[in-house]
Nucleic acid binder design. Sequence first.
DNA 1: AAGACGAAAGTGGTTGA
DNA 2: TCAACAACTTTCGTCTT
Length: 323
Amino acid sequence: MGVLCLDKDEKKENKEEINESQGVERAYPEVCPECGGNIVMDAEHGIMYCENCGYVIEENIVSTGPEWRGFDYEQALERSRTGRPITPTSHDFGFGVEIALTDSEGSPVPPSESARIRRWTRRISTSGAMDRNLRAGLSEIERLCTNLRLPREVREYAARIYREATRRNLIRGRSISVVAGATVYAACRRLKHLRTLQEVSRAAGTSKKEISRTYKFLSRHISDIKSEPPKPEDYVDRFCDKLGLGPETIEKAKEILRKAKEAGLTSGRGPQGMAAAAIYIAAILTGNRKTQKEVAQVANVTEVTIRNRYKELTEKLGLDIST
DNA sequence: AAGACGAAAGTGGTTGA
DNA sequence: TCAACAACTTTCGTCTT
């Protein structure tokens, strides 16, 4: 640990700074300022966040609890924490720097020099907070991708976007789960492993609106994210797979969508509803009838939407499904 | 009884003034 | 910022298989 020196004028200010940075009796809100939810503490990551929406109240918190259990008073004293834990994932192994008032010879350090040291100390500790945020974000991405059964390339792409967002300071004021969800959604779209906003937001435990808003925000600032709007045919394989429909039906559904596109029936329509209607029709035409309810559930749309779309399709494309 | 249909009212996002 | 609009959802009664 480096022992550095400050002149006396700065002693008081520094003491206050140290007290603040160590979180002595700091006042935290009792409920989330965003949604009013319960505030919980993730001691492992040193993050205080909202249990409900994931909004980060405070990062970089040092645990003040005892290191080990003590079975009597002396043991408890002996085993209690004397500082932050040593961790290889922290920029400084968790040691930190304390700035003393004099150098090793006992002579006072000039104010300009001590100010410079404090500036660097603050800079270093800030990057530590970013590291922690990054770690929490990356592990959330890992969790989401496992949950959504996404391949490694999507995880890596999402992680790259998350790093970039952290580097450009785009994370601040947004919850980790929302940003992680938005990066996963962006990676899915970009790499054509489409997952709907509903699926991603459900896995992330946040709202569709939040993920969508953050996705748009990130794509405004990170050009890598920009991708074409999802097409109905991109959903066909996965929806058919979930419904247990074979390649014949998949091909038929894609053919219907091709014709629909040529006839200008797809523009302005939701791609999921469009895909669902095409699959519903294709399933009937290939003798693998599924109910509107089944298809609607898989595609995350309502039966009414399927009815509206498939009515348009059958009428305009001259398809006969009266079997 | 389950599935399909359609009307009506409500919701949330987009667009343009 | 607000109103208009289109797409979509929810709900519910009715019809068909």
